[in-house]
Design a protein around this nucleic acid. Structure first.
Lengths: 188, 188
DNA sequence: TGCTTTTTTTACCATTTGTTAAAACAACTC
DNA sequence: GAGTTGTTTTAACAAATGGTAAAAAAAGCA
């Protein structure tokens, strides 16, 4: 739980009483590899902090191809936040790439904290905005060739290459797994 | 100014007194084609609402190539918000693609409104989050070929093709202008 | 209008990436 | 260990895109 409080305190100050209020309301959740945290067609009902494991956001286009939008690693927030806030149906899946341990805020908890902790809203909004921002800044750059995208991926996510299937990385980088395999051969 | 109030009221209710407080503090700004609203290396000091015109967010990679990150059209907020909030140096330019009319919130105004309008923070954060979200959802999909990306661009921004130079669209779609020209020839 | 500058299109060839199919490799179960 | 399943690599060829250079078209201006 220390990881979560450290994460939160990056964005503002809370006293130990307030920290305890948060700890009391958090739910631990374990997710097995391949299990979904949230699914397309459903309304996201939870915000999670990733304690252990890697997850990804993905969706399917109109040809049925799977597209990985992002990876979420340890010590980060995870949620389809805009649809969570709007109570709207998501079109994305959030799926465990490895076995995961999460700390979960239910919608009720998330909203209640705004009432009982002065300054929570400020922290909350900073967390969410920076989370969205960093995610987008790590995305592969569309004008670069696949080799460059792969090399930048390694820089951004150095620990992921050995943790998750190649096909997920390929679908994140926008290439086929065969092409990615060829790229890996050529750069080594 | 009606456009701005309609935009704001999408995200929450304000009474006419509160609306007037906002109106009083807003500054009108005209920007000529190619002029910058904010620049890389500087701290963003304003949030703007686009009344007329089209702008784009762009940056330069380590090869000096120009990459267009997004387009911002009429009736949308524009800001490098995370760096604005953090008082941090931006790495992006926000540039007018056409002559523009903007309604500008200075940093002082933006922060003062939180003090003098109850509920402004809730509206503000919804605006900013949805703004970030929609921008990312309109981005070209990296796994699609350039023709598909161009066709989806037309769907997302039907009015832009005749308003801005082809090279900006190319750098947004991640192709050379020659390739984009070829694509346009082939689909018609 | 005539001239200049900017933008867009064309063409040719090199390189990259996709497609399809099969083989190699690794992990798991019985 | 043999068989099964899932993952990664390889290969050959087709298609898409990039790089370079030049031409054509459009826009701006004296």
């Amino acid at each position: 739980m220390k990881e979560l409080t450290e994460y939160i305190l990056q964005f503002g100050n809370l006293n130990s009483h307030q920290i305890n209020l948060i700890k009391e309301k958090i739910i631990e959740l374990e997710l097995k590899k391949d299990a979904y945290f949230s699914e397309a067609g459903k309304i996201p009902k939870q915000v999670a902090f990733v304690l252990e494991g890697v997850l990804r956001g993905c969706y399917y286009n109109n040809k049925g191809e799977e597209i990985t939008r992002c990876f979420i690693q340890e010590n980060n927030l995870m949620c389809d936040y805009v649809n969570f806030e709007a109570n709207a149906v998501s079109s994305d899946y959030l799926q465990a790439c490895t076995d995961c341990k999460l700390l979960v805020f239910s919608r009720e908890t998330w909203e209640e904290l705004s009432q009982i902790i002065v300054g929570w809203d400020v922290i909350k909004n900073k967390m969410v905005q920076i989370c969205m921002y960093q995610k987008s800044r790590k995305n592969p750059v569309i004008s670069q060739d696949a080799t460059t995208r792969y090399l930048e991926f390694i820089e951004n996510y150095p620990s992921l290459i050995n943790r998750i299937p190649l096909i997920y990385i390929a679908s994140y980088l926008g290439v086929t797994q065969q092409s990615l395999s060829r790229i890996r051969k050529n750069i080594s």
